[in-house]
Amino acid sequence: MEKKLKYALYTGCTARESTPELLKSTLAVAEKLGIELELLDEASCCGASHLQDFDDHLSLVLNTRNICYAEKQERTMVTLCNTCQLNTNMTKERIDHDPELKAKVNKDLAEVGLEYRGVSDVKHFLYAILDDYGLDNLEKQIVKPLKNFNVAPFYGCHNIRPSELHGNDESAYVPDSLDRLIQACGGNSVDYEEKNKCCGFHVDLQAPNTANRLSGNALLGAIDSDADFMVTPCPLCHLNLDVKQHKIGETMGRDIEMPVLHLPQIIGLALGIEPKKLGLNHHVVKSVYFQ
């Protein structure tokens, strides 16, 4: 890379709690690739589409505050979770296109000495690698290609829909970013019907049967297309597919044993970073190939 890439990293909640391996592997990969990530320790939860169901204004103010801190660093904000990406970007889209709303949000932010200007972009780590670092550059760094592995990409809704919002050139119907990344890492990306479908995470508590069946369809889709493991850019999808896998198997009436990796973990493996540094030991369903 000619110029060092620098981002403000919005970890979201899960990367600091239930998926610590996501933060570990992201930092390890960034270090290896020479990408500078400055943690946004001031940021709060994005509301995960749930606060948005209860208090719209509060969710706008809190998300805007998070962006303010990326603006202070004068950097693009990078997210690690599809749902953080959706809610942050949706907030930005709304206030950037509605001066009245922007003024209202800024009035509250002024109370804590902040002002939203609208100068920082918001981008998921996947697209930072794809668009800014570049797959050609990544390929040059690969020392342990994921040769002979069939990898099932699981895109997660909130990076690809609504496509109008995201502006990442991804088709909601034929997304290919993860497929291209898998191939760049030397793996064989497998095609299956559920790869761009929903895992049901957001109704886990109130409608577990819905969530289990949707995640189950995805897991079985991957199994039936001969995948060795799945990969997802979203820690919420990961929680459902990995932590709940046994219960999902019971719902679906089939034994399921499918390792699910986070996006930076497969990059890290291909870059030759040791599995422990990528937090693979934190998974409930172990990726036996890499232990």
Binding site: D53, P162, C198, H202
Partner: peptide, 15 residues
């Protein structure tokens, strides 16, 4: 079971 709380927030409908 049937209402707003059963929406999975996938945005397929918007798309």
């Amino acid at each position: 079971g049937s209402g707003v709380w059963d929406c999975v927030k996938c945005f397929e409908c918007a798309e």
